[in-house]
Write a protein that binds this DNA or RNA. Structure first.
Lengths: 234, 234
DNA sequence: CCGATGGTTCGAGGAGCATCGAACAATGAC
DNA sequence: GTCATTGTTCGATGCTCCTCGAACCATCGG
């Protein structure tokens, strides 16, 4: 009821180092097999299996069986949002003065956050879209303005398909390391997908990094008018 | 690091029925004593003391000693936001078809959510303010527009004092029962405080309800142009 | 059909932690 | 000063649940 017993159930699932590692790994956006997740968490596959069962029962993750492999992924955007909130919250008290974010320059520059672009390029993209008035605020979520619709349509994204998704089209995601906001939601995911589709960047195999090709980054920055220069490391 | 060990610590604190009850009770917005909190959670004061110590160490709650009493309250808006997110998330899967929200009509109509107004009147207030373009969206949080500034200044709120608070002035809060949004943040808190200051309503003693006086509700609805009529129970 | 690999189920062991009884410190009322 | 109330600390108890060894299904490749 009002005592939030469900809240306890949700928190309990995350309040375990092993499951937290699994969920964090899945926040990389890829679907991973049970063995891969057990490895990522540093436990045997038996233990991993029980944890995945719990996460599955609670609809925290979704499963798809391909042959003898079982691929797990974050169930939906709501779960991703909860995890984001928790990470963002946890990042507050711990490092205060400490340098925020990962040390790996590639990760700082561009990485995936569940299914959308984070890191400096993600922040710059969102900032640029804001300046060009691509969004309207309707009281609950932000949505594409007519200008925004045109912008992503020109970029090669089917605005209609994006709108028809269940999840909100646009959502502001507070990155737990950058302390800046970037774009999540269906549009955020579509933008990242299109950037990769265009060959401007590739996703790191086992890391969360997004590796932009030199000319890809030039094209990306040019297309979206990103002038910011931070951490010019390559 | 990136494994979210802090996330586990935060989740662990909430992943206990006793602490969850305490935190839920504190989300009522009042500062409560250790004994009151132990009573609310249904445990002895010894056990309650250990839990409060943990919550205090983690900065989830803040404590103020008044004589031999020790008053605990939610530490800050960030903690409140995390709890809101968790409750909102938990409300999703459980009751799907089930009627949402508390059954008590008084609670449905108007109640406190940490420090701001929730329930139907809270939703109506936010909706009305939106229609009158009281907010601007700056990319990270919503803020008062010039029209909004005038509006709350006329209502008797010191806009400057509100702006000088550390926490964001305006924040959209998704109520876990109403499934609608209402206004949180410094402005949301100031609005509720002013409503009570004006004598339009009083806070329930041991409940979360906000009891509007008949003429107080008329004045409130009139002032903010709230036309909605739902649950005309009194 | 047979080995190899991915994944699950079962049982036992063990660690963590919530809980309360008891004793103690601190403050307020009279 | 004396007593009652508030709150904390300590120790013992017991439960939950994480973990892995072992055994067992399912699928793929030959």
């Amino acid at each position: 009821m009002t005592d939030g017993s469900n809240m306890v159930a949700a928190a309990t699932l995350i309040a375990d180092h092993t499951r937290a590692k699994m969920l964090t790994a899945l926040m990389g956006g890829r679907a991973l097999t049970a063995t891969e997740l057990a490895g990522a968490a540093g436990i045997t596959k038996q233990t991993g299996s029980t944890h995945l069962r719990k996460l599955l029962d609670a609809r925290f993750v979704a499963m798809e069986a391909h042959g003898r492999h079982r691929y797990f992924r974050i169930a939906d955007e709501e779960v991703a949002q909860l995890l984001e909130e928790l990470m963002s919250f946890s990042a507050r008290s711990s490092d205060r003065t400490y340098a925020t974010g990962p040390k790996d320059p590639a990760l700082r520059k561009a990485r995936v956050c569940y299914d959308h672009l984070a890191g400096e390029l993600g922040v710059l993209l969102y900032t640029s879209l804001l300046q060009r008035h691509a969004f309207d605020f309707d009281g609950a979520t932000i949505a594409l303005s007519p200008a925004g619709e045109r912008l992503i349509a020109d970029f090669g994204i089917d605005a209609h398909a994006v709108r028809s998704q269940k999840r909100p089209p646009c959502r502001v995601c507070m990155d737990w390391s950058e302390r800046r906001h970037h774009l999540a939601g269906a549009v955020g995911a579509a933008l990242l997908a299109r950037v990769i589709e265009r060959g401007w960047a590739v996703r790191g195999k086992s890391s969360r990094a997004i590796h932009f090709r030199p000319n890809g980054e030039r094209a990306f920055r040019g297309y979206f008018h990103l002038n910011g220069v931070l951490h010019e490391a390559v």
